[in-house]
Design a protein around this nucleic acid. Structure first.
Lengths: 358, 358
DNA sequence: ATCAAAATTCAAAGCGCTTTGGAATACCGT
DNA sequence: ACGGTATTCCAAAGCGCTTTGAATTTTGAT
């Protein structure tokens, strides 16, 4: 069923039917109702393509998901973020077009999206330090918003970010106030902007508590269980092991916990742990009382809001830049406690296992 | 830059330019080169919409992701699956359109996709028992393929599935052969078709080893860390606890491990664990030696293959149904060992923790 | 040189929608 | 009843591409 057929059925012109459907005022109310009913009954829906051609809009948003070509890794927050953004799009009649791409082809993809007029705007995921995409999209005049920020960008742009710096500042301060002086940081890849900010928050808090920074207590890498495990094991093996560890994601934190327990320590008593928690739907941090003390911020909510930001930008290209800085909550869980008075006894691990990742 | 402009630049008709670009034979080779070069230099790319309108193809594939309206959960395998499918689409010039939807609106979404001619075909995710989507899509005459199978479907359809039954049969048999007689199953939601098949494999193996089925050793639910933990704790607390547990996903397995260790048992010695491993990029099962013994099958690879299946279906709507049944490998890891000669001593847990999810 | 066949190019129609510029009809006060 | 204004509807153009059917040029054989 297309417009022509529908209008013939009704004995009206395509113009009138189109206007009735799109809510224009120059059509009699009775006629509109008649059209609406007929459209409903026949299941008529305008062709996306034809409509897009006629209006010049794509009614679609592009999400270009970078997949680290080295580790072939898909960011685990991705599913929940998309779910959030999808809600917003659905409410506004937009479609979501997904492209996965490794870093090398990124520029091509954005240029293609623009040249083919496939989308009205894009969401930039996982901004890196001095991310070249900002300038590129700016030059292409393709509306975009960034999930996170890209330090070093020379042009203004719309973004939504968690206040990573303050979150990690608070987490670190909280541990300091509990008496911890040796605090480890299992960070994400520091080419990523957010990891950079988190470290700044961590370092800032240590400085404010007059605690020197120890390179041996900082690792960075992809946020996998394995890296959390490896990093923790390494720190624990050092001559001056930490009494607390901050992890950058729930996934790494699971590895941190595994290493701690495998070494025979008790999390929350011998070693305190704080993690950042994106509130992924399949990895909930406890039901009532959180297992992990965590800096918490819903990535799904971020998706919803960021999508809204983009739609606003598209509706009004000349508006001033929009920014949204979400503060993470510090949720108290069972994984933190006062610093042990002395270095924890090193109980021999209950399991002789000592190996790679789960 | 559009076709008209490009053709004027070249002093050729739109027809010729279009044909040169699309590889038709009726254009002189020298002309084609000239056109190709000009297109390259000017960055010309045909408008997706215009092309789609003219050809009647959408050059897009729809993925409709069900989000359990109850738990608001996004399946964690989703990201990797999409990454795989995306590779195939990119190679073939297709776009991926993503829609997230809760069960109630599913039908509407598919009808909309069809009526608006937004996609050339769709991938059905997470088929349930007697899934109504199969019949619906069949009626709509919208080409589709299914990731998994839907028992009870009355029409033939294309699918790609892991042989869940044989995988869980082998895992269970393997444990039986190691002497285990009380084997727990932490299954996915049994409204899901795959969970049903897995239980059938598990039950079949027990039967073949003359081991009665014990309802107390079977749980099912969303595959979260928390459910893995809760289920395990419950089984371990029973009067006749299992000596081995099979988990339906790495995420649940992490919960299983937490419960085991929290109770003071050693995984692989006191309690054996086998999990299904989808080879998610951020949850690798060890580097060299797997942590968990696992039935392994790459969901990313499944995405790649299933997408190819769909493109073939679209190219040839009348072809006979295509099926691909992938066998999971049984990877030996550190989490399994011979059944303890007697019920494991119940060492008091090293941690007094006893609580909800991690 | 000549003419049919092959190779190359083009003008125009059409895909399904929106939107412009009118045309037709209804309504108002006088 | 009449001119004028609102209201309601419509024909046709246009969005950027592909494709049909025809025109033009080249080629090859005589």
């Amino acid at each position: 069923m297309n417009l022509k057929q529908l209008s013939e059925t009704l004995g009206l012109s395509q113009t009138t039917v189109s206007r009735a459907l799109n809510g224009y005022p120059e059509v009699k109310e009775a006629t509109r109702q008649r059209v609406l009913l007929a459209a409903e009954q026949s299941g008529y829906r305008p062709s996306t393509r034809a409509k897009g051609l006629a209006t010049g809009q794509a009614l679609a948003i592009g999400h270009v998901i970078p997949i680290s070509s080295k580790h072939e890794m898909v960011n685990p927050i991705f599913g929940d973020f998309i779910a959030g953004a999808g809600e917003t799009y659905a409410q506004n009649g937009y479609e979501m077009i997904l492209t996965t791409v490794d870093d090398a082809q990124e520029e091509q993809i954005y240029r293609g999206l623009k040249a083919r007029r496939a989308v009205d705007g894009v969401v930039v995921h996982g901004p890196r330090m001095d991310d070249p995409r900002i300038a590129l999209l700016h030059d292409l005049e393709l509306p975009f918003v960034v999930h996170g920020r890209a330090s070093g960008a020379t042009t203004a742009y719309d973004w939504l970010d968690v206040n990573n710096r303050s979150a990690f500042y608070r987490a670190t301060s909280f541990l300091c106030d509990l008496g911890h002086r040796r605090i480890g940081l299992i960070n994400g890849l520091e080419t990523m902007d957010f990891a950079h900010r988190r470290r700044a928050g961590y370092a800032g808090a240590l400085k404010d508590h007059n605690i020197p920074i120890d390179q041996a207590l900082m690792t960075s890498g992809e946020m996998t269980e394995g890296n959390g495990y490896d990093g923790t094991l390494e720190m624990l093996a050092s001559s001056a092991p930490p009494t607390a560890i901050i992890a950058s994601s729930m996934i790494s934190a699971l590895g941190v916990r595994r290493a701690i327990e495998e070494r025979g320590y008790v999390m929350g008593r011998d070693i305190s742990v704080i993690t950042h928690d994106d509130m992924l739907s399949y990895l909930q941090n406890g039901q009532d009382v959180p297992i992990f003390t965590a800096t918490r911020s819903s990535v799904r909510d971020a998706g919803r809001r960021l999508a809204a930001l983009l739609l606003r930008r598209i509706a009004n290209p000349a508006a001033p830049e929009q920014h949204e800085l979400l503060e993470a909550e510090l949720m108290l869980g069972r994984s933190t406690g006062p610093a042990p008075l002395q270095a924890p006894l090193h109980i021999s691990p209950s399991s002789p296992q000592k190996g790679p990742h789960p």
